[in-house]
């Protein structure tokens, strides 16, 4: 989900936190924070805190070697030069092993203070992905306007304008289809359509996405994982 936004990432491993990643794209506009709790894994063991510097394109090449149904075991030594990846099918009569070179990555780490949030929107992840993709064809900027009874996505481009308005509703049968708006104060913020399209690459990871918006501040887009999260912080655009 994140390899088009960032190329090199440090994966921090610890027994208590599981795997955490913070990465910022080269333009310093999009920050990615990933947390995969230890409980997400069938087995997780980390005797000593470890930083694995990975080239995501290379990691992706290795991960594609396995079949979906296979078990994947990732292993690294105490002061590793390589990450080992072992795929095994259920009957353990096919085993494939790969080793991926690790890198020393010197990356910025930003401190994100707890933010006051003006509004929180939860909507189906596929719905947000469709809006982000469709609106990008109209404009390189997407404005999100939230009031207590609607969230409006608005694009103004060369060929014309477009908007999608969603109203809050609760779907009792399929809660993940609901649209929820929690509002402390109304917000209107504009974001780069390109970055929103990078963010929605996480769509398959979660049925819903939660968007937290605060006036004149970066937005938080959160995809909850079964045990952990993938968060994107996106700096807004301002009227020039």
């Amino acid at each position: 989900s994140i390899k088009d936004s960032v190329k090199l990432c440090n994966f921090n491993c610890s027994q208590s936190q599981g795997i955490t990643v913070q990465a910022i794209d080269d333009s310093r506009v999009l920050l990615i924070a990933l947390k995969i709790d230890a409980g997400s894994f069938q087995e997780f063991r980390c005797d000593k805190d470890l930083v694995l510097g990975l080239d995501l394109e290379s990691l992706s090449k290795i991960l594609k070697q396995g079949n979906n149904e296979e078990y994947l075991t990732l292993m690294a030594e105490d002061s590793p030069d390589n990450l080992m990846a072992v795929f095994e099918d259920k009957k353990k009569d096919r085993i494939s092993e790969f080793s991926l070179k690790l890198m020393d990555i010197d990356s910025d780490v930003l401190t994100i203070d707890d933010m006051e949030t003006d509004c929180t929107i939860t909507l189906p992840a596929y719905e947000f992905a469709k809006i982000a993709k469709d609106m990008k064809t109209l404009s390189e900027s997407l404005k999100i306007v939230v009031t207590k009874d609607s969230v409006k996505f608005n694009a103004e481009g060369q060929i014309g304008t477009g908007s999608v308005i969603l109203k809050p509703h609760t779907d009792m049968d399929k809660p993940e289809e609901s649209v929820k708006i929690e509002l402390n104060s109304p917000v209107a913020l504009t974001f780069g359509a390109k970055y929103l399209n990078d963010i929605v690459k996480a769509t398959s990871l979660s049925s819903t996405v939660t968007i937290k918006l605060t006036d004149k501040s970066p937005a938080l887009f959160e995809y909850k994982l079964p045990s952990g999260y993938l968060r994107y912080y996106l700096a807004p655009k301002f009227d020039d």
Binding site: I24, S27, R28, V29, L30, L31, D108, V109, L110, T111, I112, D113, S141, T190, G192, S217, P218, Y233, A235, P236, K237, F238, D239, D240
Partner: peptide, 14 residues
């Protein structure tokens, strides 16, 4: 007509 802001103007480097 819009100017893209940077995360560095909101978050501190640690």
């Amino acid at each position: 007509k819009y100017k893209q802001s940077s995360l560095l103007s909101f978050f501190t480097n640690s």
